[in-house]
Design a binder for these strands. Structure first.
Lengths: 205, 205
DNA sequence: GTTACAGTGGGGCACATGTCCCAGACGAGC
DNA sequence: GCTCGTCTGGGACATGTGCCCCACTGTAAC
């Protein structure tokens, strides 16, 4: 078993344990047990538990950015025939919420890893980079949606995107506490309405 | 030293340790070291570390609800002379954000305790009760602000309140990651604008 | 002064954790 | 077949953890 593959297997196992039992429970032994390896194999693939955790944080956050970007892009490409701006934005937010609802354990793990990373000086930047990527993804959706519906934004797209990301963050934590779709849907509607305020027909379109 | 006082001191110490070093570091020994006691004193006041944590979660979350309610009520009572709805709502949100900015460690501790509580079946209800209290506080501010400015809401105040709470949650996590006032202020402005959509002059006022 | 007892400190138990070491297994090259 | 170097398993170490016990203090009652 090549080292690279073993590292991947250990990262997978660590992610599984964290999602199921929390960061607190992700001890070296729990991870190797999950991966079906011995402790020696662990320290053959990784310098230390700390290094493993660093890679876990990095991989999970990067993966999450990818999947979110994918979900948003998928919703934005759903433009079969004429679509309105609120429909597009609503679909994008629905896609995001559906992804969170589909795998709450993963989302909870991500939040725990955020906290973990924010406590480690050398990992804190990963969280900020993650949010920057979210901002970019949201900005992409906003501009694409406006372009597809002959509208334009009256405010900076970057600012609007940050607002959207802030809101999705709130939606995520709300879902993890209540698991209540109704509690989410109202906020979702208001969010869309809030953003629409800053759009207008594009005279150039 | 009476038992009740000792328990309070230990709760204080635990809160301090958690805010400074995280929940992960809040071991029994770390807490008694912070409180300047011996291990025996700890187990004289508390049945177990688990029981202590249960009380910590309860107290911190209840305290947070109180202080948030206080901040919001304070902002709402700032009605010297004629004030507009957006001013009132903006002031309330500013008060909230200022409280978060003033003590980020405490806010981070609260988020960690949320995660901790959500992992413990018997503590999860505390988080939900906390959010329910936030909802109520936000609803109170919304109705008070509307009444003070001769306006009324066109949507259910409960739903609007939940939206506000969701948003403040996002603002909090955003602040903890970036500590960037500008990043917050834009979202704050959009939030106010978003809510204002659902207000109208009250003909009965 | 003696007794009784709530309260406290130090030490110790059993267990879990991160890390390391060393004996052995495995397979490739000759 | 043999050797050599990579890889792996089990065991062990030091440390940290939650919890407990026993000896001791101080104080209050008589």
């Amino acid at each position: 078993m090549p080292v690279a593959e073993r590292r991947q297997a250990l990262l997978d196992a660590a992610t599984t344990v964290i999602a199921r039992d929390g960061v607190r429970a992700a001890s070296t032994r729990a991870i190797v047990r999950e991966a079906g390896m011995s402790l020696a194999s662990f320290h053959y693939a990784f310098e230390s538990h700390t290094e493993l955790m660093r890679h876990v944080v990095e991989r999970v956050l990067v993966d999450e950015v990818h999947s979110v970007t994918e979900v948003l892009a998928g919703a934005a490409e759903l433009t079969e025939g004429p679509v309105t701006l609120p429909e597009l934005l609503g679909a994008a937010l629905d896609g995001f919420v559906a992804a969170v609802e589909a795998d709450p354990a993963r989302e909870q793990a991500i939040l725990e890893l955020h906290q973990y990373a924010l406590r480690e000086p050398e990992l804190a930047d990963l969280v900020r980079a993650e949010y920057a990527a979210y901002d970019e993804a949201a900005a992409g959706v906003l501009t694409a949606a406006a372009a597809a519906t002959g509208t334009r934004w009256t405010r900076s797209v970057e600012e609007l995107a940050r607002y959207v990301v802030t809101l999705t963050d709130g939606l995520t934590t709300s879902w993890l506490s209540f698991r209540d779709p109704e509690r989410i849907s109202a906020a979702r509607e208001y969010a869309v309405a809030g953003i629409l305020q800053f759009s207008e027909p594009d005279p150039d379109a």
